[in-house]
Design a protein around this nucleic acid. Structure first.
Length: 581
RNA sequence: GCGCCUGUAGCUCAACUGGACAGAGCAUCAGACUUCGGAUCUGAGGGUUGCAGGUUCAAAUCCUGCCAGGCGCGCCA
């Protein structure tokens, strides 16, 4: 992944950094012209609201003590309205404390902007995101959940940042496995099972035929012939193949609906099939592809990458060829600013090869591979052969029923239809959050209790905080009819109120950082911290029973702002925020 | 054998890309006024950041060497 360090800062940080930079320049002149001044949230509330560590880095270039540098930079100009305090601490940290009124104004300004104040760096840009991409004729299992959920969160974040996103589900709908399935289908299909659970039946057929092909060379040969017939456009095989795709898509879309995931297009590998010979010709024409052991390959020794086969000995093509055709097609059709691929970690070499060859073919579009760690069981990897694969719909069923049990216990009066709907929002939210709250690269060891956690750092914890605010605001409307806090002045005298305001201000920063790094976990962690700050605030301070009306209005507005950020942020993670849970 | 990745509290993970005493959740223990919703909150215990060197004002983070694990290495995607 070509992740050049980009330093994203919020509006507040940018403003403070600009002021500090002016101070450095005033104190030390041209030596600081190229200095990158970064302001980040304080690591400890005791230090202030924000901090800058860059004075210490100047020790060498200026040849002075870091503390003296920091002090001189601060002394060079008067304190701006924004700051109540600016002081030097430790070896040369600059600690900044905002003035409460200025902080309140920043929060109000951000709240007035659409989407919680997210910047729009993607305006006018297109990005193609390739994710989920299950194989046709195999049921979706928990091995597919990470690409789908992580990819979808990235998709939503980029849209929110103004990008035109093309979410493309690059289905595995072509390849050698279809010869095996077609041959197996003719021999083994059980119509009753096919009607009952089509994709499961196709997988059973595949496994059976695959095993037979290993034991019986004649069978293997027959499978190959079916594949050749399919590739040559034989009507019967084509019809079967099409049927497998339709049956699979029907089942996939049921799961996507449950997960609230949707794509702009679903062009599988087969869609690019006609381009493959041309890609190889092109590679040969520019001298990249050579013949080796009967196959056509691209050597990438300079890049220290393994050989990449673009055409097999038998004339068939590999997925490297297919991906090259796909990238050319996407570039021609969308002229995207970048293309993002979300797959598991095993494909890193493949993407390095394929990106390298793309560049040699003149593709200049930024190509990023977002990889995630494999999902495994405590006892080892999932495998169809061992029969320990957990199907995606089974997982989702379990998630919903666990949520349902708790809802039934806490809200027995709720109508059943509403209970079901809620159980889905909470159960699916728990599953998504369990995944998205981790750095994608960490390997996940699956256990039911972890995947479906409903307390602590979990999806439902965030949903609960949101629902509690909704309930509080409903009560406010009932107790103080006609009272409007939408434009109330924010009074931030209590540390808990101040912390909430600062947290709200961090929302755009969290989203931009999460999107740039392709780590929804950054956003998830931010939302959890916000919900925690809110829960503490809620515990400590009264809203409806606040001493003065002005305080009540201020706190009610603060609550509404938090709810808004939670709604917006969880929405970007694909997690629903019911008014009641 | 080569390449990529990982190693942080009993467990699951953070640490804003080199910054201040390494932070959360779970589990354990002790608490929370007449509940603005207890799926909550407050607090306590728990750490030689795999090991050994090095780089510098500063290292979980960068470099070197080990140790342990995961994944990948020419016709599967």
């Amino acid at each position: 992944m070509s992740n050049e360090p980009t330093f994203t800062v919020g509006r507040t940080e940018a403003e403070l950094a600009q002021w500090l930079k002016a101070g450095f320049c005033a104190a030390f002149g041209e030596a600081c012209n190229d200095l990158l001044v970064r302001v980040i949230p304080a690591t400890d509330p005791d230090f202030g609201d924000f901090q800058c560590n860059d004075a210490m880095a100047l020790k060498k270039t200026l040849g002075k003590a870091p503390r003296a540098i920091a002090e001189a930079a601060l002394a060079a100009q008067p304190l701006p309205d924004a700051l109540a305090k600016a002081e030097v601490a430790g070896p040369g940290f600059i600690n900044l404390t905002l003035s409460p009124s200025w902080l309140a104004r920043q929060v109000a300004e951000q709240a007035a902007l659409p989407h919680g104040g997210l910047p729009q760096p993607g305006a006018g840009k297109t990005v193609v995101i390739d994710y989920s991409s299950p194989n046709v004729a195999k049921p979706m299992h928990i091995g597919h959940i990470r690409s789908t959920i992580i990819g979808n969160a990235i998709d939503r974040m980029y849209r929110a940042l103004g990008y035109c996103v093309i979410a493309d589900n690059h289905l595995g709908d072509w390849g050698t496995q279809f010869g095996i399935i077609i041959k197996g289908f003719r021999a083994f299909v059980d119509p009753a099972r096919l009607a009952e659970s089509p994709v499961e039946e196709l997988e059973r057929i595949y496994v059976k035929s695959y095993e037979q092909s290993k034991a019986d060379p004649a069978w293997l040969d027959a499978c190959r012939q079916e594949l050749v017939k399919l590739q040559q456009g034989d009507p019967e095989n084509l019809a079967l193949w099409k049927q497998f795709i339709d049956l699979s898509l029907e089942e996939f879309s049921r799961i996507y609906r449950r997960l609230d995931v949707s794509f702009d297009r679903c062009h599988g590998e087969s869609h690019y099939n006609a381009m493959l010979p041309g890609v190889v010709q092109q590679l040969e024409a520019v001298g990249l592809a050579k013949e080796s052991d009967g196959a056509t390959v691209v050597f990438l020794e300079e890049e220290k990458l393994p050989v990449c086969i673009v055409r097999k000995k038998d004339g068939g093509f590999n997925y490297a060829t297919s991906d090259l055709a796909t990238v050319q097609s996407r570039v021609a059709e969308f002229a995207p600013e970048r293309i993002v691929y979300v797959t598991d970690e095993r494909q890193q070499d493949h993407f390095r090869q394929f990106f390298t060859i793309s560049r040699k073919l003149g593709i200049t579009t930024r190509l990023d591979h977002v990889w995630f760690g494999l999902m495994r069981l405590p006892e080892g990897t999932f495998s169809t052969r061992q029969g320990n694969v957990i199907k995606l719909d089974v997982l989702l069923d379990e998630a919903e029923s666990r949520a349902r049990a708790i809802i039934q216990a806490s809200s027995p009066d709720m109508p059943e239809i509403e209970q079901c709907e809620l159980a889905r929002a909470v159960g699916i939210g728990a599953v998504k959050y369990a995944d998205l709250s981790h750095d994608p690269r960490t390997m996940i060891v699956f256990t039911w209790d972890r995947a479906l956690a409903l307390d602590g750092n979990s999806g439902p914890y965030l949903q609960y905080a949101h629902a509690r605010i909704c309930s509080l605001l409903d009560k406010h409307a009932a107790q103080f009819p006609g009272e409007d806090f939408a434009a109330a002045e924010l009074l931030l005298s209590d540390p808990a109120e101040r912390l909430l305001a600062l947290q709200i201000l961090q929302f755009p920063v969290a989203v931009v950082r999460a999107a740039e790094a392709y780590k929804p976990s950054i956003l998830a962690e931010y939302l959890f911290a916000l919900a925690q700050a809110y829960s503490s605030f809620y515990q400590r301070l009264s809203v409806l029973k606040a001493e003065a009306p002005a305080q009540r209005l201020s706190r009610a507005r603060l609550c509404a702002l938090v709810a808004g950020v939670l709604r917006e942020g969880l929405g970007l993670l694909g997690i629903k925020t019911p008014r009641r849970i």
